[in-house]
Write a protein that binds this DNA or RNA. Sequence first.
DNA 1: CGATCTGTTGACTGTTATCAACTCCGGTGG
DNA 2: CCACCGGAGTTGATAACAGTCAACAGATCG
Lengths: 264, 264
Amino acid sequence: MQAGFPFSRFANRLATLGELSSDHLDLLARMPSSISHCSSRHHLLRRGELSTHCHLLLQGYLCWQDPDGRDGRIISIHVPGDVPDLSTIYDPRIDYDLVTVGPAVVASVPRDFFRELAEQSPSLEHALLLLILADAASSRNWILNVSSRDALERVAHLLCEIATRLRAVGLAKDFRIPSPFTQSELAAACSMSAVHANRTIQELRRSNLLEWHSKTITITNWYGLVRLAGFKPAYLRLPSRDDIEAPRPSTTRSGDAATLAPLR
Amino acid sequence: MQAGFPFSRFANRLATLGELSSDHLDLLARMPSSISHCSSRHHLLRRGELSTHCHLLLQGYLCWQDPDGRDGRIISIHVPGDVPDLSTIYDPRIDYDLVTVGPAVVASVPRDFFRELAEQSPSLEHALLLLILADAASSRNWILNVSSRDALERVAHLLCEIATRLRAVGLAKDFRIPSPFTQSELAAACSMSAVHANRTIQELRRSNLLEWHSKTITITNWYGLVRLAGFKPAYLRLPSRDDIEAPRPSTTRSGDAATLAPLR
DNA sequence: CGATCTGTTGACTGTTATCAACTCCGGTGG
DNA sequence: CCACCGGAGTTGATAACAGTCAACAGATCG
């Protein structure tokens, strides 16, 4: 895989879902796109529109957000390499707003490019479908997050998910998560009030699970956070890693260097 | 479309999502299946299994349920004609338990049958994908239901969804919904306690929106319920009907015969 | 006809939302 | 350079909503 290839995160992810031959890479490399640098809270799509282009996120975060019901509930968050609206290649109807969280770099790719990709290669189509289904699995998990965990577990789980997805594309290697998120946005994602989100984050800080300074969240006790959240990443459909289960679950409290050691 | 065809509800739904030629119907009619009569709370699939057969619901209800997190949260509900695990034709991993709610009749169809169907006909594949995507759209909507509505609106919305989906397959024509649901199960679907579900239902009854006797829920004021729930059925991806918007939204309170008239 | 599951009610508790005030910070213009 | 401004974060007080516990009633089923 060419490293400098601007879509390599996307291509790598596809490759983990199905075998990609060099022919497939050639097809992908021909991806026509126009690259935009978007400011925070830029709307890429709005409810009611019909999709003509898919949005491949290169840098930053995107989220799907409900434009109704005040507080603008966030129903999913996406990291570089994701194409949040990939499913519009089969159904172009847009149910929610696709919005940047913080500044972001986005590649617009004609919907037809992916359609033709799918038509030309069954194995590529299958990989694309698995990407779409992974998003659906994430949605189902999101239901459980907002409905069956309390505030502390919810925030912890969301951060575990973001960290894991970033690490899967080579980011946040040291559990330092770039965070353009405001506490209000975090609250919208965890479906709670901004005030309560603030108090919840303070509690996570007091528990020495994380720090949050200057637009960076640093998870200082990963296994502690995972345990608190009950985080089981199978639903993300990522290649399995060994850095989720704590090495010694018998230790009830751990903030030492071992928990922070590089894990791969 | 043959009326007696046991899979006609499924075939009809497919036909609304893409043009089905008589060739397609022939292919569908060859569906191999074994039909099971299941008692209430029968587990058809469990987390961690790999799917070999898809489950086409012929009568009754199915739900996806989280086996962890006590209360067994329900994350989706399915009506006759649905194939809740259709997406397993592309990814056989099972994340949740597939469980009957009340007695149900289910046809087991080999996963490979649908795979081959998809391979043989692009238009059939597209229709199957739209079914899968409609489930995904429902999941996203379910997130909003449990996260941004209060208890009363949540229950109202769930009942609107079930009624609409039943009516789309020719059931509940008079807004009488067969309900093998216990209040605990309704609570698990709306992510609230059983006690609170009970009180919420009582309030819906007191408001003359519905009755619930002998395993039948009767919606006595459909438009009132729709209004209370803020129900907008676009996400269900059903052919549009004219029975959602109230004819005269200026009338604040209505329980008269007009609101109950057959609406097709 | 007892056993069990479901529905109902009351009292109490607890989590989270809401409101309001205040601080802190970065940017901007005078 | 500083005053101001707006957005973000923080804090406390209060209220609303929903959960829990416990008891009982009613239905259903062997």
